[in-house]
């Protein structure tokens, strides 16, 4: 991203439980840009950069948002969780595993955002109806699956959590 003002700044963000220094940043950068290009966290995807596609979804202080619409410098002091913070590599969360089991992943580009949105949905509504799932995931666009298997994956998690499955 160009820096029309020539000003570079340094600040720190709390991401996935760690305090990370952001150096030589232009203050106009989005959180998505900072996560990917300054901090090397490539899990959040950039597609539309206007909040339409949801592939950059993260939580900021527990709220699901599009990281492309957050001015990174305003998130200083807030708790940011990205897809990298959902579960350690090699031991997927129940939602991640359900996406694999249900065949809800095709090209995979939308998957990180959908996993973030699905976790957020299931925290607020443990047993969502299909309509509720469609509504709650309406900000995440997938061009491969047709959504059927994604909805199936979310429903599988709801059932397994109800039946006492591990997260």
């Amino acid at each position: 991203m160009a820096d029309p003002m020539g000003h570079h700044e340094q600040y720190a963000l709390h991401v996935n439980g760690h305090t990370l220094e952001v150096r030589d940043a232009w203050l106009g950068e989005s959180l998505l840009y900072v996560l990917r290009e300054r901090l090397g966290l490539m899990g959040s995807k950039g597609a539309c950069e206007q909040g339409e596609c949801g592939s950059c979804s993260v939580t900021v202080d527990g709220r699901l948002v599009c990281s492309c619409l957050v001015l990174a410098a305003t998130a200083v002091g807030q708790q940011i969780v990205t897809i990298e913070g959902v579960a350690p590599v090699g031991s997927p969360s129940d939602v991640q595993q359900a996406f694999v089991d249900a065949g809800a992943v095709q090209c995979g580009f939308c998957t990180p955002g959908l996993i973030m949105a699905a976790h957020s949905l299931l925290e607020r509504s443990p047993e969502p109806t299909e309509m509720e799932i469609r509504e709650e995931l309406s900000g995440n666009i997938c061009r491969c699956t047709g959504y059927g298997r994604i909805i199936d994956a979310v429903q599988r998690v709801a059932v397994s959590r109800r039946d006492g499955g591990a997260r």
Partner: peptide, 27 residues
């Protein structure tokens, strides 16, 4: 003035708008 960012950040990301001083109100 920056509130939720859902309008301003779209313009900023696209380079359609340049800003010098930003006061963020969301917090």
């Amino acid at each position: 003035l920056l509130a939720g960012g859902t309008d301003l950040m779209v313009e900023l990301n696209a380079g359609h708008r340049q800003v010098t001083d930003v006061v963020s109100l969301s917090r």
